[in-house]
Design a protein around this nucleic acid. Structure first.
Lengths: 342, 342
DNA sequence: TTTTTTTACGAAAACGAAGTAGTTTTTTTT
DNA sequence: AAAAAAAACTACTTCGTTTTCGTAAAAAAA
């Protein structure tokens, strides 16, 4: 089964290669009769256009990259699905890259993309990324980057986020209103803008309600499950343990649940927990987890849409544009106060 | 910032294009002195090899596709991670495609790959796929396909599965041993071999324990959340409701939990539930879900490894090879009998 | 009928890298 | 010192498509 190319089709029909090429692209330059013949013959010979030849000529690969820190996070999964939906609508393919929250991995991935393997990138920063040269270089190579969620303010481009400050504020206030006086915040990474925003919301809520701020209540977690477990265990084991936990990411809430189980702490009596989460099982946990749900799918769609708005130009420049979507706070029993216990 | 190519580098150094090309590929034909100069200059000029030019010449794209029915399933996520790990080790890129359990989508994706956009494919069949022409055609176009989990016996190639019959048998027997006399099986899709194997294991266990087989206890679910909910609700609402449910996929277990909540049924007292699941939250559910955990990550790695063993040959033919990994049954409270209630 | 326009097609030059088959220079062997 | 061998480099073709520029024939306008 040898590969059929334009030349073979053209020879069979005794026409030129250009005629075949144009006919298949439905060019106005080719007569209807010829078009029909070409299309039929190509079909019948099993012709498949070699995409790479076209990419070489047109400097377009009809491929975008989606770069995320991890896959074991429903937020990213849903965002990828959203991006994928738009990409396929636009007849593009999607390369997935996982940085594993490792900045050097992120750098090597972006370096590898500088050669034009993709036409554009949608990404969420790794938690260990502190400098952005690799990103500006990519954009400099005329490959546009659109951020979602874990964005980078320093770079001028389109960004999709949620209202992290407000969500952080609301989450914390929700805990306070349900009786918490000493709330710990499980931080994802101090490098990330979204984490900072959430932290600010947390601090602001404490402030508003006259709760003293205790820096040791901000627990800096990492990508290492074991070390997170240790930190959270230490936090909850001390005799001066907090009465509420606000987790910035679903996996830390899960770890907190595990720690509570292991230490035999009752949620929400001994400890109330609220978390950013897109877990489908949140309502089924013991107890159901009060969640801040981000519109992940929608964010992926938005990011992709914003990217495609600019693809196809010779020189691509995406001006600053911040799309901010609203997250939803869904109250469940993990934060129930004495009065509203279900 | 105009793109730098070999020619520009060669002109700067007053050498030929081939010299630059060979120097960068570290060919023995080029002297060390020249190599050094070329590498330095290329680096300094910001040269990036255009991948598509090479692909065109070598008919290799250093890209593989991973095709899955859905992303909202931890099994597939973990499998993708495993495949991604191997692919990046082998310096390949990974295109992700989602069929949404839709056979026609699957067909169009495979058709789109026939032109050589990828060097090989790792896939899990959609639940609606009944014919396999699109797959044999792809393989006929010299693009190898390795299956994992939702495999197709009719096609000769490498396949990675788990011991589905045994798992189905063990799951059912586990329910029986914990007191169930009337067990429903939530089927994923009758088209899938893994579902059939699991069903057989289920039937065999019933048989062994002298429990009469009732075909109406095999609930054919689909990809539609709402219709699944209805079917399961109907099953559990009837006054002749089963006392045990064996779910073939995690999402149906989640739906079952939701139905139980809505109908105010107590798990495991009113109903015991066991499910195939790679949910991280399984131990935290109310009650913790007894799970058959598939080694998804390992399966992805295996599938990728088997694919890469054959890539690089001119004519690729992968003979039948069945790798069967073991799943693990993790007992938790969703199936606890009176004696072993925790 | 002649000129102009339109229609339909073809020849050939990109695109960027890689590798084959020389060619020249240097080194080694006799 | 001549011949042979090795080293270092270059010219050119190829991969498959797309597209620009041309040209012939047919149709329309003069």
């Amino acid at each position: 089964m040898t590969k059929v190319n334009l030349k073979m089709v053209s020879e069979k029909l005794n026409v030129s290669v250009s005629t075949v090429s144009k006919a298949l692209r439905n060019s106005y330059e080719i007569g209807n009769e010829t078009k029909r013949k070409v299309i039929d013959t190509a079909q019948q010979m099993g012709y498949r256009r070699n995409p790479y030849a076209g990419f070489l000529r047109n400097h377009r690969s009809k491929t975008i990259a989606v770069i995320v820190p991890e896959l074991a996070n429903n937020f990213f999964i849903q965002a990828i699905c959203g991006a994928e939906l738009i990409a396929h609508e636009k007849d593009h393919h999607v390369l997935i890259y996982i940085t594993h929250d490792d900045c050097s991995k992120e750098e090597s991935i972006l370096k590898d993309l500088q050669n034009g393997r993709v036409d554009g990138v949608i990404m969420s920063l790794s938690g260990t990324t502190k400098t952005y040269n690799h990103i500006t270089e990519l954009i400099g190579a005329n490959i546009p980057v659109v951020f979602f969620d874990r964005i980078c303010y320093e770079i001028e481009t389109a960004k999709v986020t949620t209202d992290d400050f407000t969500s952080g504020f609301n989450a914390t206030e929700h805990l306070i209103k349900n009786g918490c006086m000493d709330i710990a915040y499980l931080s994802l990474s101090e490098n990330l803008s979204i984490d900072n925003k959430r932290t600010q919301g947390y601090l602001e809520a404490l402030n508003k309600h006259g709760i003293p701020i205790n820096k040791t209540r901000i627990i800096k977690c990492s990508n290492e499950e074991k070390s997170n477990y240790k930190k959270i265990r230490q936090l909850l084991k001390s005799n001066r343990r907090p009465d509420g936990v606000f987790s910035s990411v679903e996996k830390l809430a899960i770890t907190s649940y595990v720690v509570c189980k292991d230490l035999n702490l009752k949620i929400p009596d001994d400890l109330k927990i609220i978390s950013f989460s897109n877990l489908r099982t949140a309502p089924l946990l013991d107890p159901p987890l009060t969640s801040i749900v981000q519109p992940a799918f929608e964010m992926g769609k938005q990011a992709a849409t914003m990217l495609f708005k600019h693809l196809g130009k010779k020189v691509i420049f995406i001006p600053n544009e911040n799309v901010v979507l609203k997250s939803e706070l869904i109250k469940r029993n993990s934060t129930a106060g004495k009065s509203n216990r279900k």
